[in-house]
Write a protein that binds this DNA or RNA. Structure first.
Lengths: 210, 210, 210, 210
DNA sequence: CATGAATGAGCCTTCATTCAT
DNA sequence: GATGAATGAAGGCTCATTCAT
């Protein structure tokens, strides 16, 4: 039964602070995020996370069943924030300004992704699930596809196969941004304009060269 | 004593076969591929690889400095084969049939990727290097970008920013194919046609609906 | 948050029911018994016990100072019930029917042990105390030894060294029953008759083969 | 892939001595035996075992797949030695001296068990397998049963149900010896004589009180 | 009486890599 | 070239127990 009674007398009583679960969760996830960013997931032991969060190791396992569940929670949080940025950005366009919304979607995706790609890599590099059929990514994809369909209905553009076009835009913009990131170019504006131009072509809108 | 029998087996085959390096390399990589596919990279110890290849553990380290170098070699092999498929497919088009070449590139990328995505994941899921600025992927990207530029020069289409358009096509096609894979749809033809149609639009070619 | 959901459930029943200690004790012991039987002692955390019993973890420690004390309580309960069965069985014999009492003791020991051996193993497999000099077992041994001495005084049999003979019968019957259990033989009667015959011989009573 | 390359330069080269598997196995098992006897199985980490055996921790797992397998190997070794003692002891009797052999079996069982019961407890207290239908114990039981049958055929005694009688003797002698051990009586001779006397009665041999 | 968040010591196991033969 | 015994750093996870509320 593994007698664990031989405990040395506690030197410092180590004030045991009880905090709301919400706060603990956030502290743990933030500590993990910081360390994962600095040293990588595999090189960050749970020990370091709890040390930075200022809790005992058992507390970590009180909130997360495993390191992978922590990653899953971070992934959900990351995606929610990403989606939020996109929606906020698009909300500044008039309701019927479909071209503006699409441009905002692209611009914000590029900016947000370029800012957060390191965290993106951390939460999405999952050894056990593939990117394919990822529920979180699907949320963003569905958002984009819905926009393409709405725009088609409104006559803003013509998209015959909204799913495929949404996929091309979604994956294309992310993949292109990977190249932007790799280029280390500080000014993103030219790149963004270029991507928007191509995507407009893709939905059948030719910009007037004026 | 890799099977952890606590009795040494008195009868060991002990035949020390010397084979050409080329053969050993291939046997080791194929054994690794098989096991990586079956159990994942992290869950496949070198022990298992050498056991399947029928060599001693030390032999592995004669040929690969580390497990990561094995992965790098597998990655190079994978990419070379992939590129090869693309080139073979495009070589069936007339030299000036740019639309045909682009369609072939897309079609073959989708087919090849759908067939080999599991191996793709294995060799490209590298915890230490990001997809961004990956030399192997760049080879394919450059190939595509060159084609877009050549086609523009020949008047087959007009692509104002070949780098960006190549990125969108490259990443878009792969990302869209991830969705095809996830859908488990057996017939790829409709999907392929849809992607080609969108990509043609992207390079400024409107298909005649004839 | 014992199920390790990383979202606190807003709706918790939170009904703090106060029950008589006796009931709580019983509920905890029964929950433990069920889980110990199903998964083993070492693989059953206190968490699971309290969850099944429907109380908080701290409540467990109100009633038992430790997991080991729970086991001790279960052991006492087990032994008391076992002794009870033996006494009830023997009470059906006439006061001076020593052979009948001995046979009843053996028969009931075999039946009871065969029925409850799994619980027996749980409460008696104690990593820290050995079977040797176990106070609970001693109660049964003393009961048997007293019977042997009484029967000798009454001339029912002759047992020169009651302690040794009691030990042989006690341990022998249990050990033999282990074999019966292992054999999975459903009909115990032949076995019981065989054991009784041997034990009678042991106390110097030759059965007439009539 | 858990880069384990960040290894600090080795201070002491720690001469790596290769020994025959047989020797390593024995050193590991003997180190374990010593520590298990001193501190108990659960309180002895593998670390301590390898430290005492003078090998690296990995070496332990080179020879035993788990701590439990070590225990299994120790159990097999224990039983083999025990059986050996019994056979050696009986071999000193004349081939047809069945009473002598039975007495030798009992005497040696008691002596050997009293000497080694602590190790017996260690190797037989298995959390996962029950004593019932234990292959190692069966070897001794079969040995005893065969002897009873041979003796019956030779007319040395009459045992109607050799399996049951063997079980009673086997389990009875061990259980009785547990009591001897608990009593801490240094002189075992009286006890041994008493047990032998009872067992002879059990096989139908009345000693002449001369 | 009852709660359950928090504690933290502890250990088994894995496996990439080395090197004496 | 080939072998495989030996190395040893590293970390995820469990769970009995405590105690502030």
């Amino acid at each position: 039964m593994e007698d664990r009674t031989n405990r040395p007398e506690p030197e410092a009583p180590k004030t045991r602070r009880i905090k709301p679960a919400e706060v603990r969760l956030d502290e743990l996830m933030s500590a993990a995020e910081q360390l994962f960013l600095a040293k990588g997931v595999d090189s960050t032991p749970i020990n370091d996370i709890v040390a930075l969060a200022g809790v005992a190791k058992g507390t970590f396992y009180h909130y997360f069943a495993s390191k992978n569940e922590l990653l899953a929670a971070m992934r959900a949080r990351y995606t929610a924030q990403f989606l939020n940025r996109l929606e906020t950005s698009m909300s500044h366009c008039e309701a019927d300004d479909w071209l503006g919304k699409l441009a905002a979607w692209i611009r914000e995706t590029i900016e947000a992704y370029a800012e957060t790609y390191r965290l993106h890599d951390i939460v999405y590099t999952n050894h056990h699930h593939h990117n394919r059929s990822n529920p979180d990514k699907n949320a963003m994809l569905d958002q984009l596809q819905a926009m393409l369909e709405d725009g088609t209905r409104s006559g803003a553009w013509t998209v015959a196969q909204p799913r495929i076009t949404a996929l091309l835009i979604y994956a294309g913009v992310h993949g292109a941004t990977d190249d932007l990131i790799a280029s280390q170019e500080a000014d993103h504006q030219a790149f963004i304009r270029g991507v928007i131009a191509d995507c407009l072509r893709l939905v059948g809108v030719e910009e007037n060269p004026a």
